[in-house]
Nucleic acid binder design. Structure first.
Lengths: 333, 333
DNA sequence: TTGTAGGCGTTATCAA
DNA sequence: TTGATAACGCCTACAA
């Protein structure tokens, strides 16, 4: 908390001297050992913490590169950040050092606690991911100081990079109908998410459209464990099982496969399972997981491009970019 | 690149006026529409980019909180960041806002390209993860401006948070010997990593110690795909198989299980498989994966504590903290 | 409605 | 050896 000048005063030297000592240039400047020791002592006592922004301002000189922050939730979805980053790392803008990328964790539903969105004191632009409905409300209703791009959420106010969630849901319903299913179910992660809701809505509408019957609407934690427990509960109860289940997230589908294996329910013979996301693990489950491919890598690149264009004043008003999903057929469905 | 003053000059107004306009306070200040328009025009032309550090310095006022950066590699291991963060999010230091946490991606083997380690212009301290041997050499041989804690690598020069990799390797060998195995193999991710080398060394020493025979030393990409391909190649070749395989990373073991399932090799009857890390997916594979638990969450907390103590001058010389691993028995071994 | 000046913390430079 | 000072870019209270 102490500044270099406060230390200087207390140690009875000038701030320049303190700076040299604290930065290991004391010997080069031939500052006496006793002074060094005294200053270091005082700095420790006072709890000196260099001000990064002051340092940086001083050194910034010519190159003032935009800082882009990826706001990612500190929850189970943290593992999804991996694919997003892998998209960005091949981006030439990134390799040429035309922007600096940082990831800042935030707590789901508490985007409003990220002060720097108001103050603009941390980054030149942000990519918002995994926003809950409350987070979206916050974004819609507040004037922020920083350009934003919203990932996987629809909004009129900001640029966004999305997929057509309803269409995805419909596509899955159609796919199941084509495979001859009559009674199907859906398993939803219990998180607040517009993207999840749209998929669900599209699926349920599709069910009606294709004359299927929705026998089960289940929910559980967004995790392997959540999927496992949901599936186990379904197996243990005595009622009829649907012939197919649509899991709105791959980790849940993976947990469910595990429950099926454990309790002797055969996939796909007794029940078919389809997931969503096409995570890295999906091809390697048993049986391998049929799932909806979400083009995360391409969307990540689009997010960066949109944000950079906004920061560089190339874009005037919000632009919405929509990507396509597709079903990847494997063994489970 | 243009500063507020340059814009002011070009637009023929003062820098204060420009500031008001650029920050949306023009109306409050009753600046004429024509001036506003002109200034915005010029700002766009000149490509104005606010200097984050200047803004921040101006606003910092009383609270100068340490910024901690997690330097994480932009490769397959990005998915492991999830458990690390989950450790930190429960930390009271974090919840009380006693530090700011950022994640900065870096390319494996190119830690030396992270300039801010020399300049100290981005963060007050860093946690280095996934360092390759070249990265470690770089750290050992350079004087950096920022306090560091090294995760999962041993070093005398910096504080570190590790496990005893040799002991882990030995433990696995002992475990396999106890289960009656005679001929075993090891599968190594082809990345440069001291941690991997230590595990391998400990395992091979253990093999000798417990009178086992090491029939296969294989390697592959650090990923599910790498494990799958390695296992498939092993199955396809006609020679004898070992009765147990130690995979030095869970994703590889998961890929290998998939290959076994696909080609009709029964686990654990025909071959036993043990992994390393205890990733979230390990309990949900088929069969569930026996693996070595790496206490990532606890280690993450230790990293932050050590780093904060260093930043706050509580620690004088490097401290090395060692955590314990343990074998989690499931079905695969 | 616009301009001016001071200050945030650090560091390079120049002077003593 | 050490001290004083200017400058980095932005913001804002105050003056005009």
């Amino acid at each position: 908390m102490a500044t270099i000048r406060e230390i200087a005063e207390k140690a009875g030297v000038s701030s320049g001297t303190v700076s040299f000592i604290l930065n290991g240039k004391a010997d080069k400047m031939r500052i006496s050992a006793s002074t060094q020791k005294r200053v270091l002592e005082v700095a420790r006592e006072m709890g000196y913490l260099p001000s990064i922004s002051a340092r940086r301002l001083r050194n910034e000189g010519e190159k003032n590169i935009p800082i882009i922050t990826l706001l990612w939730t500190l929850d189970a979805r943290a593992s999804l950040v991996s694919r997003f980053l892998q998209g960005i790392q091949n981006l030439s803008l990134y390799r040429d050092g035309l922007f600096e990328l940082l990831i800042q964790p935030y707590e789901n539903g508490k985007l409003h606690e990220v002060d720097s969105l108001y103050t603009g004191t941390r980054f030149n632009g942000a990519i918002i991911t995994n926003a809950s409905n409350e987070d979206m409300d916050f974004l819609e209703n507040n004037k922020l100081k920083v350009p934003l791009v919203v990932y996987l959420r629809e909004t009129k106010k900001y640029s966004s990079v999305t997929v057509d969630g309803k269409l995805t849901g419909n596509m899955v319903a159609s796919y199941l109908a084509d495979k001859g299913h009559k009674e199907v179910g859906i398993v939803i992660p219990n998180i607040s998410s517009q993207a999840i809701e749209l998929r669900q809505e599209g699926f349920l509408n599709g069910i009606t459209e294709y004359n299927l019957k929705n026998t089960h609407t289940l929910s559980g934690d967004f995790s392997e464990d959540g999927g496992y427990k949901t599936m186990r509960a379904l197996i243990k109860q005595s009622g009829e099982l649907p012939t197919a289940l649509f899991f709105l997230s791959d980790p849940m589908a993976i947990g469910a496969l595990s429950a099926c294996n454990e309790f002797g329910l055969r996939v796909p013979e007794d029940i078919e399972i389809i997931g969503h996301d096409n995570n890295e693990q999906a091809p390697y489950t048993y049986p391998s997981l049929t799932t909806v491919h979400l083009p995360v890598e391409e969307m990540a690149i689009a997010c960066v491009h949109q944000l950079m264009d906004t920061i560089n004043h190339q874009i005037e008003s919000p632009v919405s970019l929509q990507f396509k999903t597709e079903i990847i057929e494997r063994r489970s469905c």
